[in-house]
Computed example of a mutant assay.
Amino acid sequence: MDAWLGYSWPDACAWISRYPRLSDILRQVYTLTLAQILFAFLFLGMANDRRRLHAAALATVFGSLATIFCWALFPSSGASAYWTLAPEIDRIVRPVVNSAYGSELNRLLVEGVTDISELQVTGLVGFPSFHTVMALMSLIAIWPYRLARLALILVNTALLPAILIHGGHNLMDVLGGTVITVISWWLGLRVFEAQDRRLPRLGYAVPAIET
């Protein structure tokens, strides 16, 4: 399906290998994805935006459960598990999730885990990409706030190629993560609003400060 869309992980790595400094920057961006969603939560809390903070928290839980459920039904190790980069390209790019790691995930899928104390994993889920879920959830959550929105747009512009190259993902993994994010955000809002309507009937006061 990636080929239908004109994408190839080895070709992307071959291209980025011509720009080693850019590859290093994308590696750092990839490793800071969790910090991005933490920033969104802290920002919304300090902004007293109860609605978007609770919706984002709920949506992140829904997104993580949906991601795990999809992967449990259809396990996938990502593009890096099925392509072996040329040694020189691998040396320059140094993907966080490289071919050797992908091969190890394939072995674990077949043989299972015999000793969990020896399990050393950077990530397990290929499709859908949870890095994509975290990145887009952060952006959607703080969207009404112009400066924060612009900052995360810049970060996520770099994060997309970082997820593909250093995350060893297929393009379809990112598209799958995007769909899950949109659905999870919608569910998060609906659940929050239903709970918000229910609280006064139960005798709880709803905080007046919210946006």
Score class of each variant (00 low, 15 high):
Trp4Tyr: 13
Leu5Arg: 13
Ser8Ile: 12
Arg21Trp: 11
Ser23Ala: 08
Ile25Gln: 06
Leu26Pro: 07
Gln28Phe: 08
Gln28Met: 11
Tyr30Pro: 03
Tyr30Thr: 09
Gln36Pro: 02
Leu42Thr: 14
Leu44Cys: 05
Leu44Pro: 03
Gly45Leu: 12
Asn48Pro: 04
Asn48Phe: 15
Arg51Tyr: 03
Leu53Thr: 04
Leu53Gln: 07
His54Ser: 12
Ala56Tyr: 08
Ala57Ile: 15
Ala59Tyr: 06
Phe62Gln: 01
Gly63Trp: 03
Thr67Ala: 14
Thr67Lys: 11
Thr67Tyr: 06
Thr67Trp: 08
Ile68Cys: 08
Cys70Ser: 08
Trp71Gly: 05
Ala72Asn: 08
Leu73Pro: 03
Pro75Glu: 11
Ser76Asn: 15
Ser76Phe: 10
Leu85Ala: 03
Ala86Phe: 03
Glu88Asp: 13
Asp90Ser: 13
Asp90Glu: 15
Arg91Tyr: 07
Arg94Cys: 04
Val97Ala: 02
Ala100Leu: 05
Leu109Asn: 13
Val110Asp: 12
Glu111Pro: 09
Gln120Asp: 14
Gln120Pro: 04
Thr122Met: 10
Val125Lys: 05
Val125His: 02
Pro128Ala: 02
His131Thr: 06
Ser138Lys: 11
Ala141Lys: 05
Trp143Glu: 09
Trp143Ser: 10
Arg146Lys: 12
Ala158Cys: 13
Leu160Ala: 09
Pro161Gly: 07
Leu164Cys: 02
Gly167Lys: 02
Gly168Ser: 01
Gly168Ile: 06
Gly168Val: 02
His169Trp: 00
Leu171Cys: 01
Gly176Tyr: 04
Gly177Gln: 02
Thr178Tyr: 05
Thr178Phe: 10
Val179His: 04
Ile180Met: 03
Ile180Cys: 02
Val182Cys: 02
Gly188Leu: 06
Leu189Thr: 00
Val191Leu: 15
Phe192Asp: 07
Glu193Asn: 14
Glu193Phe: 12
Ala194Gly: 06
Asp196Cys: 12
Arg197Asn: 08
Arg198Trp: 13
Arg198His: 05
Leu199His: 05
Gly203Ala: 11
Tyr204Asp: 00
Val206Asp: 00
Pro207Tyr: 04
Ala208Met: 07
Ala208Lys: 11
Ala208Val: 10
Glu210Asn: 15
